[in-house]
């Protein structure tokens, strides 16, 4: 039985476009599923619906085998979630949060103490747990939030942009823990992120969402293989030769987005084209200031599917009137 099964899931807001527009997806038990997209693409709205925080306008979603609309209480009992803003009370200590979370889930006091201690140790928060949350750093809040999400041993864990704003060390620690949860405890992880490397490093499969629809889905390797070809980005030594550079490069592949000071193409014949390009530019008298050869990335997959780069597309997108 899949851990998450979604059919034609839609959420429309009164004053905005359809934030999620009829998506279908399936996540198997124990899988880490990366849900990738720019700000406003519909990632968070999807998570809110799957975690029963927002009812869908239409479509169905089963989480841990339970319908998110008809059987919300059972869904909530089976999931854990750490959303974008760690929902913590600055007046309470870490331990007080643990005890509250346990009480909300109806856990026994002894189980809360045992499991809470174990999780605080695992996320490195045991010492800080007796202090008020108001004094925690962003990374500490995230780690405590993760421990709270895991307290009642959920079968499915939702992490909504869990590493946004974290320093590289905290990010790496969180990646390790998420990977361990899936590998050792069989927890299904639904991870939304705008960071390509995060999805690449963690996710067994990736879904790319844009303007509320899933534009690509598969393993990161398969998605990149779909694009197949490497790309090259060149900056001329003299800015005045940019147009000549673009004309020459056009013989070797399809133009793709590049910095204003250079040009880039997806190579028709792959890496083998690099030497002929250099020779052609030399023949034209165009001196190369910088040349970068890149293997396909998930950003390339996004570009291929949407015509835009992932990192630069967030600003124009909207997610409607979110709750």
């Amino acid at each position: 039985m899949p851990a998450i099964e979604v059919h034609a899931l839609t959420r429309a807001f009164k004053k905005g476009p359809r934030a999620v527009d009829g998506i279908d997806l399936t996540v198997d038990e124990g899988e880490i599923y990366g849900f990738l997209g720019p700000n406003g693409a519909g990632k968070s709205t999807t998570v809110l619906m799957l975690t029963t925080l927002l009812p869908p306008t239409s479509g169905t979603a089963l989480v841990a085998g339970f319908d998110v609309v008809k059987d919300g209480a059972r869904v909530r009992g089976a999931i854990g979630a750490a959303l974008q803003e760690a929902a913590l009370d600055r007046f309470l200590t870490g331990w007080e949060h643990v005890r509250l979370q346990g009480a909300l889930h109806g856990m026994s006091r002894s189980d809360i103490e045992r499991r809470g201690g174990e999780l605080l140790d695992r996320v490195g928060m045991r010492e800080a747990a007796s202090r008020k949350v108001g004094g925690y750093s962003g990374g500490m809040k995230r780690r405590l939030d993760l421990a709270l999400a895991l307290l009642h041993r959920p079968r499915v864990l939702f992490l909504d942009e869990p590493t946004t704003g974290l320093d590289p060390q905290s990010r790496a620690a969180l990646w390790n823990e998420v990977a361990r949860l899936s590998r050792d405890e069989g927890v299904t992880v639904f991870l939304t992120t705008q960071y390509l490397e995060e999805a690449d490093a963690l996710a067994g499969r990736v879904g790319i969402i844009d303007h509320g629809t899933i534009v690509a889905e598969g393993t990161p390797t398969a998605l990149k293989a779909e694009i197949g070809r490497a790309s090259v980005e060149i900056e001329p030594h003299e800015a005045a030769r940019l147009a000549d550079l673009e004309r020459t490069l056009a013989q070797f592949g399809t133009a793709i987005a590049a910095p204003a000071t250079g040009a880039a193409i997806r190579l028709d014949a792959g890496v083998a084209d690099v030497a002929p390009i250099v020779r052609a530019l030399d023949a034209e008298g165009i001196r190369i200031h910088q040349l970068r050869l890149r293997e396909p990335t998930l950003d390339d997959v996004f570009l291929e599917k949407t015509g835009r780069t992932l990192q630069g597309s967030g600003d124009s997108a909207t997610e409607g009137d979110e709750a």
């Binding site: 029963t52 209480a73 959303l83 929902a87 979370q101 909300l104 889930h105 109806g106 709270l148």
Partner: peptide, 14 residues
């Protein structure tokens, strides 16, 4: 306003 209510809505079955 602070988002804390989401923790309650997410965790409380009934």
């Amino acid at each position: 306003e602070s988002g804390f209510a989401r923790r309650l809505l997410l965790a409380v079955p009934h």
